[in-house]
Simulated assay, not measured.
Amino acid sequence: MIRIRAGSPRGVRSGAVFLAVGTCTGLFLRARRTMLRELRQARAVAGAAQSALLRPLPPRIAGLDVAAAQLSADRGAAVGGDLYEVSATEHGVRLVMGDVRGHGLAALGTAAIVLGSFREAAHDEPDLAGVLRRLDRALARHRRDRNDPSRPAAEDFVTVLLAEIAEDGSLRALNCGHPWPYRLSGTAAEPVSRAEPLPPLGLFPLPAALPAADLGPLRPGETLLLHTDGVADARDARGRFFPLRAVLAQTARLGPLPPPVLLRAVFARLLGHTGPRPADDAAVLVIRNGRGDASGTTPP
């Protein structure tokens, strides 16, 4: 006869505890794997959205050599609120550099609205003032339609720099709260202007008159470097700002560099200053006047 011996109450309790712990551990591991899988998928989707938003620029546009890159401060996704675009139009080569308040996924929708408006208006409008007004109206519609109580409309503002490079190299710009670009000529690196910009888009109505600033010519061999404030305002562990102008001047002493080389040099120095990732999104757009240069490049 087979006897079934009942376990002691202590043994039963111990077994139940081990069973509960094992079940909880299994559930935790499965939940962790699910969350990691969903996080990877979200990052992949965010990366695809960012690639569609900031489309890779061709290396040469209407005789100008071009390179651009953006670094996000958001550790959860490779996206940010910085934006840039360069378009060859019948009115000249037009470009935009902008910075949406905030960073990461929250800023992506506003950046998409501004970029989409620029890509249309840059070809349609005969002057930069018309382009800027189109961007302003598109942002206003976005703010009205967004209807997100957790994010007041007053928070959706964008710094924008619009510029136009004519066939003869003449450079004109409109600036709404954005850092002025640097012109690299020979061994010098100077801001193209020190004038006070207009307020960022979304804070106040645009003035009735919007005359574009004449910034002089971008001569063959000269380089224009546009950046967001995430570059100039980046700080190291001791709170010191990134010395962008000094870095550009040091780089210029090496001779005229192709835009991709200059871009890599600036980001290398920036990350050396801030550490692995800056506290704010950072974007840089480099345009060199390669007109008259058949290859479109200058040996490093």
Rank of each mutant, 00 (worst) to 15 (best):
S193E: 03
P258R: 06
P276K: 03
D214Q: 14
A138R: 06
P217W: 09
A188I: 00
P205S: 07
V86I: 13
S87F: 07
L201H: 02
V96K: 01
D65L: 04
L64D: 05
E38V: 12
R33L: 13
A46C: 11
L263I: 02
P181M: 05
P126T: 11
R183F: 08
P276M: 11
V45A: 14
F18K: 08
S72H: 03
R240L: 11
D229S: 11
R146C: 05
P181Q: 08
Q41M: 14
L174G: 02
A282L: 07
S193K: 04
F242V: 02
G272P: 05
R94D: 01
D74C: 06
A42T: 15
V286Y: 00
N175Q: 09
W180Q: 04
V79N: 07
P276N: 12
V66I: 15
M1T: 08
E222P: 04
L54S: 04
R144K: 12
P278G: 14
R238C: 06
N147Q: 15
L71A: 13
L108W: 11
A188Y: 00
P197I: 03
A31I: 02
G11N: 05
P191E: 10
R133K: 08
D236S: 07
G11W: 00
S193P: 01
R269G: 00
A209G: 01
E125N: 01
D281M: 04
L83A: 06
D124V: 11
R144D: 13
W180N: 07
P59G: 10
D168K: 09
H123G: 12
A73F: 00
L171T: 01
A153C: 01
V17S: 07
A52I: 11
A122Y: 04
H227R: 06
P200C: 10
R134G: 05
I2N: 08
A31F: 00
R264D: 15
L174Q: 03
V247G: 00
A73D: 05
M1E: 13
P260I: 13
G255T: 02
Y84D: 01
P200N: 06
R30M: 12
